[in-house]
């Protein structure tokens, strides 16, 4: 893909994020800001998951565990070493990446459904370890995380400032994800996604690249965990167990894992749908289940992929196949 075209694909996300950043100008409620911050931290993890699932074709059902590693790393660093937010960020990202590698090496020896089960099991295992970790992990009660988040001397604990900071991190995650998608590394990952055997026959070290993609997604998850921990001020194992992992996978599938807008759409939709429609958790799960079935059957590229395709067909009159080619980065056009 030419650089101009590649940049054009990033522009809508940047415009949407700029508008999202402008939301505080409308004096939104603190409830909205709070939910948006939680959604934003999820979106950062989703951008990592989109690299793994959307580009490499590997679905992790234990991704919340990687977020948890980042969150617990930040909390333990703050408690035991007095390490603040900004130092915790790279360390927690590294910790999540290392954990992803440890999980990835044995898990990626198996493929497909087995990998999904393995990541799910590792996620559960982490929750069990945290729950039974005694005072070190705070056991089932979890850990408090104290200390203000400051940036150039400004206290970022204020809800609006924290919101803007999270939007900035989401933007960075989107740009990083876009850069990966449009790099030779991204093309390699997509080659593996499309045909592992063919990729291997071309000299691509499939196993190493799959682990690499998992590690990259761990970095995103670790950063997400630090932001979440400092926002909530308290973390516990239940926040990073199987259900949150399933929700992350659900968000990325509903939004669309292959397009840069997908994680953003999925994160916002799943966070705000119960709020807008006043759904209780049971109703929400039913709606998400129906959405997931609909997306898998009707919109394989997710909601955003479907919308883009529909818009192209509606406005440019392009035939379906051509619209599909335009909607997602294609190896033929690289």
């Amino acid at each position: 893909m030419k650089t101009g075209n590649a940049l054009r694909s990033l522009l809508p996300v940047l415009v949407i994020l700029a508008l999202i950043a402008a939301v505080p100008l409308f004096s939104p409620s603190n409830r909205f800001l709070s939910l948006a911050i939680s959604a934003g931290t999820n979106v950062i993890a989703l951008y990592g998951l989109s690299v793994l699932f959307g580009q490499t074709g590997i679905l992790s059902m234990g991704h919340a565990a990687l977020v948890g590693v980042g969150a617990y790393a930040a909390a333990i660093l703050a408690r035991d070493f007095g390490v603040g937010f900004w130092t915790a960020l790279p360390v927690a990202a590294l910790a999540s990446a290392v954990f992803a590698m440890i999980v990835g090496i044995p898990s990626l020896r198996v493929g497909g459904h087995h990998f999904v089960i393995m990541t799910f099991a590792f996620g559960q295992l982490l929750a069990i370890v945290l729950t039974n970790g005694g005072d070190y992990t705070g056991a089932a009660t979890g850990l408090d995380i104290a200390g203000p988040v400051t940036l150039f001397g400004a206290d970022m604990s204020d809800l609006t400032r924290y919101y803007l900071m999270v939007v900035a991190f989401v933007t960075a995650a989107a740009v990083a994800s876009w850069a990966i998608i449009h790099s030779s590394y991204g093309r390699t990952l997509r080659a593996i996604r499309e045909n592992e055997k063919l990729a291997a026959s071309l000299g691509i070290n499939v196993g190493r690249h799959k682990i690499g993609a998992f590690v990259v997604s761990g970095v995103f998850a670790g950063i997400s965990g630090v932001l979440l921990a400092y926002f909530l001020g308290h973390i516990s194992p239940s926040q990073f167990s199987s259900f949150p992992s399933i929700y992350l996978a659900l968000m990325v599938m509903i939004g669309g894992a292959r397009l840069i807008e997908g994680p953003l759409a999925g994160g916002i939709l799943v966070a705000f749908l119960p709020e807008v429609l006043n759904l209780d958790p049971v109703q929400s799960r039913i709606v998400y289940g129906v959405c997931l079935i609909a997306v898998i059957m009707l919109l394989p590229d997710g909601l955003i992929g479907g919308i883009v395709r529909a818009l192209r067909v509606a406005f440019s009159g392009k035939p379906k196949q051509e619209a599909e080619r335009d909607a997602a980065p294609s190896e033929a056009r690289q």
Binding site: V15, I16, L19, V23, A36
Partner: peptide
């Protein structure tokens, strides 16, 4: 792009509608 901008603006306005003063 216009469509995207319209959609995004609508979304931002909808989100702003959550605002309600104390």
């Amino acid at each position: 792009m216009k469509t995207v901008l319209k959609l995004a603006a609508s979304a931002a306005l909808c989100l702003g509608a959550f605002a309600h003063p104390a």
